[in-house]
Simulated assay, not measured.
Amino acid sequence: MGKLIVSLSPHAHGTDSVERNMYGVIIALMPALIVSLVLFGIGSAIVCATSVLACVVFEWAIAKYILKSQRTTVCDGSAILTGLLLGFNLPSNLPVWIIIIGALVAIGVGKMSFGGLGSNLFNPALVGRCFLLVSFPAQMTSWPQAGQLTSYLDAETGATPLSVMKWAIKSGDASVLEQLPGSLSLMIGMPDSCQAGAGSLGEVCGLALLLGLAFMLWRKIITWHTPVSVLLTVFVLSGLLHLSNPAYADPIAVLFSGGLMLGAIFMATDYVTSPMCGRGQIVYGVGIGLLTVIIRNWGAYPEGMSFAILIMNAFTPLINTYIKPKRFGEVTKK
């Protein structure tokens, strides 16, 4: 007769794991990475490689020599993902030493100071990105045009679609928006009359990012609640602004400009810093969309996605407190 083993729940185990999900997100980022290599060449390769390597080294060093941890976490994919996302939020001509500082802040301040993976309050890659934006504004807002394979060495820079939109709002002149590329160019990142491919290296091709979204939804790495609520909120609010005043860009152009797609799909959906249940994720996503529209149109910066996500990261514990999933077996009182 076999032994009867009594153990604590849960008794049913799935194949889900931190490593599986982290590397799944990394795979989802590959289309955008390939496009960035095609559009920005050596600059994209240097920025991404430096960012990933620095994040991995800093996480290993901090865990081993500062936190004195016996367990290394560099193989779970989280440091690689943080480095890749940080690189995606940087211009392709950013000096290596600035990238290393950003990686140190992302890992050391944004992640490990809270206790490591699963304990951080804010998205580490965005912590690093916003620190660099505040500390090195000139270097962080120098955007090489797409199509320059040696953009790290001799890049020609200029205005981005978001800066064109910002100028149209400030001047009140809707004709300024004629400088914007067509919707197809914004979607695929190919430059035309304006710098459709100008911006951070991971945000210029909306189609590649949408392919990543489809992959993650298919693999059930994320749910639809956060990305859809962010994008839908921005679309509706931008559409209302455009109808009220043509100086505001049309919602399609807004969706495919700047880091909106990258943020909504890959940054706002971070497991640790976003709400646990679907209803909470919708509230969270609507908040991000609202703040993004406000900052983009009336704030000091043309882009507001990073700040919007970090602000809503701070509200995640509050959302989790007041919006909870129904407990298993709970009977609703009538």
Rank of each mutant, 00 (worst) to 15 (best):
G2M: 14
K3I: 15
I5A: 11
S7F: 01
L8W: 07
S9G: 05
H13F: 02
G14M: 12
G14C: 15
E19R: 14
N21E: 14
M30Y: 02
P31C: 11
V35M: 12
S36T: 09
F40P: 10
F40G: 11
V52Y: 07
A54I: 06
V56F: 06
V57H: 08
I62H: 07
L67A: 15
K68A: 08
S69T: 11
Q70M: 06
T72S: 15
T72C: 13
S78A: 02
A79P: 00
L81M: 09
L81E: 04
L85G: 14
L85F: 03
P91D: 13
N93Q: 10
P95W: 06
I107V: 13
V109H: 04
K111G: 01
G115D: 10
L117G: 04
S119T: 09
F122T: 09
P124M: 09
S135D: 07
F136E: 13
Q139P: 00
Q139Y: 06
M140R: 13
S142T: 15
W143Q: 12
W143F: 04
A146H: 09
G147V: 14
Y152K: 05
L153A: 10
A155H: 04
T157D: 06
P161I: 00
K166F: 05
K166C: 09
W167Q: 15
K170F: 08
E178H: 03
Q179T: 11
Q179P: 05
L180Y: 02
L184W: 15
M187L: 15
M187Q: 07
C194L: 15
Q195G: 15
S200R: 02
E203N: 07
L207D: 03
L213Y: 03
L213Q: 06
A214R: 03
M216F: 00
M216E: 06
L217W: 01
W218T: 12
I221C: 03
I221E: 07
L231N: 06
L232P: 04
V236D: 09
V236Q: 09
S238F: 02
H242V: 01
H242Y: 01
A247R: 12
V254I: 10
L255V: 10
G259Q: 05
L260D: 08
L262F: 04
G263V: 07
I265L: 08
D270W: 03
Y271F: 01
V272M: 06
G278M: 08
Q281S: 07
I282M: 08
Y284N: 05
V286F: 00
L290W: 03
I295H: 07
R296G: 04
N297G: 08
N297R: 01
A300M: 12
Y301L: 11
G304L: 02
S306H: 06
S306F: 02
A308I: 12
A314P: 01
T316K: 04
I319H: 05
I323R: 04
K324Y: 09
V331W: 04
